[in-house]
């Protein structure tokens, strides 16, 4: 009887050990097979600290511009989003809003000091797991404001795409206009293109630039914009500035204030007489265009007055 008890006890003990062993192995396997929790490490973002850039709080006069460089790299997941937000007087505006899918990037941005006393510029990057990282700097307005000079072109006549007399292309640096063959030879200097598209497919009288998507469809052939090596892009924004206000401009203050951080587009459609359009050219210079006249056909003309930062 005792023998059986002992055997049964041995059996029970062995069986228990066996079960404990199996369970232990199972637990270890489960633990090993479990994925490590994703550590929510945000991506890295920092200012580029080199000559020519700023990376700390600064005081600037209105209209002065500084260059900011951003370097970002991923931690766990690719970087998918980057934005720049300017906050002043309790409101925020998104200056740059860009999607991507990359392990790292660098980005240069030119800030033009606006009219606010204090501007906070925040640079944020987010990865695919929505981990975010930010850096920021504050720009204060200096007590003394030195408004910049403006260059004026009081009458620029641009021809539409089929006009063989008046050129469709304008150099903001010189104020010269060019027909397509000459413009092809002066690609580097062309900032504005004018074309007329039959509505509703296109947008009637349109101010554009070589870098705009639809410009190549109006300027074709061997010298067509598609064949250009340099395609400058000018950004436009329709303002509510009156012709009188435009005419009274003596420095670049209104040019700076009227160009928004966001909302500008690569073309200004349905241009009509009396409008004042704000723009920023490829080099970052700001300006205003007053539409003096339009003659809306594909061989017609438009007459503009232009003021641009020197």
């Amino acid at each position: 009887m005792g023998f059986f008890n002992t055997a049964e006890m041995h059996f029970t003990t062995n069986r228990r050990n066996e079960i404990v062993g199996v369970l232990t192995i199972l637990c270890i396997l489960i633990m090993l097979s479990c994925k490590k929790d994703n550590q929510e490490t945000p991506p890295q973002i920092e200012f580029i600290k080199q000559i020519g850039y700023i990376w700390s709080d600064t005081t600037l006069p209105i209209g002065a511009h500084v260059k900011v460089g951003i370097m970002a790299s991923k931690s766990n997941a690719n970087i998918t989003y980057f934005n720049i937000v300017m906050s002043a007087n309790g409101t925020s505006q998104i200056a740059i809003d860009s999607g991507m899918n990359t392990s790292s990037f660098t980005f240069n941005y030119t800030i033009y000091k606006g009219v606010s006393d204090v501007e906070t510029w925040t640079f944020m990057t987010m990865d695919k797991e929505r981990n975010k990282a930010t850096v920021s700097l504050t720009l204060k307005r200096s007590a003394v404001t030195n408004w910049g000079n403006v260059k004026s072109y009081n009458s620029v006549i641009l021809g539409a795409q089929n006009n063989t007399v008046n050129g469709s292309f304008l150099s903001l640096n010189s104020g010269n206009t060019f027909l397509l063959p000459q413009a092809f030879l002066n690609q580097d200097s062309i900032d504005i293109a004018y074309y007329y598209g039959a509505p509703p497919t296109y947008y009637s009288n349109t101010l554009s630039s070589p870098g705009e998507t639809q410009a190549p469809t109006f300027f074709t052939g061997a010298n067509g914009v598609n064949n250009w090596n340099t395609k400058n892009t000018t950004m436009y924004f329709m303002t509510t500035i009156t012709a009188t206000q435009f005419d009274q401009i003596t420095n670049d203050s209104l040019l700076i204030v009227s160009y928004p951080l966001t909302g500008s587009t690569k073309k200004s459609k349905f241009v009509t007489t009396g409008q004042v359009i704000s723009f920023k050219d490829q080099t970052g210079k700001l300006g205003l265009i007053k539409v003096i006249a339009v003659n809306g056909t594909d061989a017609g003309t438009t007459e503009l007055a232009i003021k641009i930062q020197e």
Binding site: T80, Y81, N83, D97, G99, M100, N101, M126, K128
Partner: peptide, 14 residues
Amino acid sequence: QGNVDSQDNYKTST
């Protein structure tokens, strides 16, 4: 009973 709890989570914006 039928229910839904759905989220569109943009990665290239917030």
